[in-house]
């Protein structure tokens, strides 16, 4: 399929971030968050989904200082401040890891797998790490 190189998307784009990695052990959680915050500054339509080990980023009571690190949990609480309100947590990922929603930071919307599928389907671009 070839197409005219001038076909540009509308300047408002729906971008979904799937954060699938636990915090601290590697930097993927930070990279994902940095991308989303940059996106929000550009006033894009952002979804942020915690899937698989990504849900560990949401545990209350983290203290990154214990390993000379910034506390990622604090940064995640700023998502809403940057206008990112569509923050979702995959229920099945919680269940599979024996984590109760009460152990997580507030203002997360719990969703099922098929809702994640829908978010992906309705996005222009998906970043998944």
């Amino acid at each position: 399929m070839t197409e005219n190189a001038n076909t540009a998307k509308p300047i408002k784009s729906r971008i979904t971030f799937i954060s699938r990695s636990a915090p601290y052990g590697n930097n993927r959680a930070n990279l994902c968050l940095d991308m989303a915050l940059a996106c929000a500054v550009f006033e894009q339509d952002v979804n942020y989904v915690f899937l698989d080990d990504g849900i560990y980023q949401l545990l209350k009571g983290q203290d990154g200082a214990a390993i000379q690190n910034k506390t990622l949990g604090n940064a995640l609480e700023t998502l809403a401040l940057y206008g990112i309100e569509n923050v979702y947590v995959d229920q099945q990922s919680l269940k599979a890891r024996g984590i109760d929603a009460a152990e997580l930071l507030p203002s997360m919307q719990l969703i099922e797998n098929d809702a994640v599928s829908k978010l992906i389907e309705n996005s222009d671009t998906v970043f998944n790490l």
């Binding site: 698989d52 099945q92 599928s117 992906i120 389907e121």
Partner: peptide
């Protein structure tokens, strides 16, 4: 497995 959970 992760991919299959959310595939269409």
């Amino acid at each position: 497995e992760s991919c299959l959970k959310v595939i269409n």
